[in-house]
Design a protein around this nucleic acid. Structure first.
Length: 653
DNA sequence: GATTAGGGTTTG
């Protein structure tokens, strides 16, 4: 061993030898050579909090990075827990003295060498630069100060801040995260697991599970815990973490790394299902799993204490033993972020996310029984939505003819433009303008081949109504012109000049446009009547689509959602067809294609029925009314099912 | 005095 590092090591670690201050040099991480002993600085990119190794020492694995953008994974061992770096989170800055560089599997790594010593600093820009170390005496100069500051600046521009530190109110089911909390109680569960009861002053989106233990093994203030009710969570720690957990002091502040959440549904007495959130600290040290006690001086602990002190227990108690209506008042049905509030899923667990609009007297039938029976029949069922098709909303919107029952796609905007252009090739006939029904105006466009556009303003008893009550007939207009006019006028009907009268374009085009809604007619079932028939409408200001359609001989098509639901009640799986204009989802299918808000609502409803990233156990129940019917094709007879008389539960809309 | 672990989630 070289004498100078040896003396420095003694100085830093044992403070018994008085030698002059030594100048340390720090090797950039891109200049490390195997077989050397170096001093390095770095930003912590990853770390495992110290844990007892399978040998004799504590171990901490720390990966650091510096301005050279080179990473170094360090294996740090010490028989003394305190001698390992006191790292609380990634982004902390460390200084290692007497780190041995070696090569393992072609990778350079650092490992403690005799006399290893470390300092750790908070990585936050502007935070006070206070070294954390267990060494009583250590070398710390203004140059170190500068290095730490420079690394902080570099890290702030090159390393994304740690996102794994979460408050309990922000945890989601199925997640790994780091929790800063206070230990309220603990209990031995069995050899392989140990219970920690903790809180951080915020409430989880689902109530925590409650781990069953024998009363006498619990350590902690139960009356305090009872007062806190659902502000406390139960964490089960396993295997290697058990002995650490056993040694923790109630009341201490902890950081638990890579804590895992899992959503679990449990059956309660009243047949309803309740969702609870489980917290597991699994065995092993992968991903830095572990527990570290935070000192009272830690700034995160300081913040946590303030939160804990400010928790309003009276407000808490009002929420305990909740009756549903009060509970819902506290939480918006849909969160502003556009995602479904987890409380809602919970709410759906307890009741049902859909309800029947009729037939409530019917008893429920298990799907396995329905699948054995002949059609046609009607059933009330309770099932979960395992999956649905189509997944893309716009693919589920169709046009349905109630007369011939045909279904067709909604024309795309591009196609519609072509249809309108093709229908508008004839020049407006001036003989058909200015009748008793309407006043006419004609324009000739410039730079567009002298295209002529005629607009006929339909009068009400000989008088032109205000534009927002006025129906206009338009000849030769493009889609964008028609859309602009439909914003100003009550209704727009695209027409062309016929032999004797204005006539509708073919029924590939909408027969009536009101704001953003395009009304279509069935080509099969309609037999067009003259435009002048609009005269027979007594009130020429309300322009009800069905009335307009009727006088013009049109069978209007209905906008519908067409979807296939794969329903599962645990006894069987059944595919049911849903065709809905607005009764089921309470969203008008006619408006959804042009409304972002409605699309968002629809997405939220489907996410509620079929929550992403959650097991089906945790899905809400749907109460549905279904009809079975026979479908016969060339080769076989098949039984199909359709959902009827069912709607999304009112408080979920 | 060597060993420990050598980052990359349990399956409770």
């Amino acid at each position: 061993m070289q004498i100078v590092p040896f003396i420095n090591s003694l100085k830093e670690n044992y403070h018994t030898i008085d030698v002059p201050a030594t100048h340390y040099t720090y090797t950039p991480l891109n200049q490390l050579k195997g077989g050397t002993i170096v001093n390095v600085y770095g930003v912590v990119k990853f770390f495992k909090p110290p844990y007892l190794s399978k040998g004799t020492d504590y171990c901490s694995v720390v990966t650091i990075v510096d301005e050279t953008n080179v990473k170094l994974t360090c294996l740090l061992f010490s028989g003394n827990y305190e001698a390992l770096p006191i790292i609380y989170k990634t982004g902390d800055i460390v200084r290692f003295h007497r780190l041995k560089i070696q090569v393992y599997k072609k990778e350079t790594q650092g490992i403690t060498s005799p006399g290893f010593a470390s300092l750790t600093f908070e990585g936050t820009l502007g935070a006070p630069i206070i070294p954390r170390t267990s060494s009583k005496y250590f070398n710390f100069t203004s140059e170190d100060h500068k290095i730490v500051e420079a690394l902080r600046v570099w890290a702030s521009n090159h390393i994304s801040p740690s996102s794994t530190l979460l408050k309990l109110c922000d945890v989601q089911p199925m997640q790994y995260f780091d929790l800063t909390c206070q230990l309220l109680g603990k209990a031995e569960v069995d050899g392989a697991s140990f219970l920690l009861k903790v809180w951080d002053g915020t409430r989880t989106p689902f109530p925590s599970w409650r781990v069953l233990i024998q009363d006498h093994v619990f350590e902690g203030d139960l009356s305090h815990i009872n007062r806190l009710q659902n502000l406390t969570v139960d964490i089960l720690v396993y295997d290697n973490h058990v002995q650490v957990a056993r040694s923790l002091k109630v009341g201490s502040f902890l950081r638990i790394y890579s804590l895992h959440t899992k959503l679990q549904s449990i059956n309660s007495e009243s047949q309803s299902v309740l969702l609870v959130l489980e917290f597991h600290l699994h065995g092993g040290t992968s991903y830095g799993r572990g527990i570290r006690v935070l000192p009272e001086s830690n700034s995160d602990v300081d913040q946590l204490k303030k939160v804990l002190e400010s928790v309003d227990l009276t407000a808490n108690q009002q929420l305990d033993g909740i009756s549903l209506p009060e509970y819902e008042d506290s939480f918006p049905t849909f969160s502003s972020s556009g995602s479904v509030s987890l409380y809602e899923v919970e709410r759906c667990q307890q009741l049902s996310a859909t309800i029947l609009t009729d037939h409530q007297y019917l008893g429920k039938t298990p799907l396995c029984d329905i699948l054995k029976q002949k059609a046609p029949q009607q059933y009330r069922i309770r099932a979960k939505l395992r999956s649905y098709k189509p997944r893309r909303l716009f693919e589920s919107v169709k046009l349905h003819c109630p007369k011939c029952r045909s279904l067709q796609d909604v024309p795309h905007e591009g196609d519609l433009d072509t249809i309108l252009r093709d229908g508008a090739t004839r020049t407006p006939d001036t003989k058909l303008q200015n009748t008793s029904l309407y006043d006419s105006e004609m324009w000739t466009t410039k730079d567009q081949g002298e295209r002529k556009v005629a607009v006929h303003f339909v009068k009400n008893n000989g008088i032109l109504p205000l534009s927002n009550n006025c129906l206009i007939l338009i000849e030769g207009g493009t889609l964008s012109e028609i859309c602009n006019l439909s914003n100003k006028f009550h209704s727009v009907i695209p027409v062309r000049s016929g032999a004797e009268d204005l006539e509708l374009l073919n029924l590939s085009a909408p027969f009536l446009i009101q704001r953003k809604i395009h009304h279509y007619g069935c080509k099969q079932c309609s037999s067009l009547k003259p435009i002048q028939n609009l005269n027979s409408l007594v009130d020429k200001t309300s322009w009800i689509p069905s009335s307009v359609a009727e006088v013009l001989g049109i069978v209007p098509l209905q906008y519908v959602f067409v979807m296939t639901f794969t329903l599962d009640d645990g006894t069987g799986v059944l595919e049911a067809f849903l065709m809905d204009s607005d009764k089921f989802f309470q969203i008008p299918a006619s408006e959804i294609l042009t409304s972002d808000d409605l699309q968002k609502s629809m997405d939220m409803i489907m996410d509620m029925f079929c929550p992403p990233e959650i097991k089906i156990d945790a899905y809400p129940w749907l109460e549905c009314f279904i009809k079975s019917y026979n479908v016969i094709n060339e080769t076989e007879q098949q039984i199909c099912y359709q959902i009827f008389d069912t709607t999304v539960a009112e408080d979920l809309i």
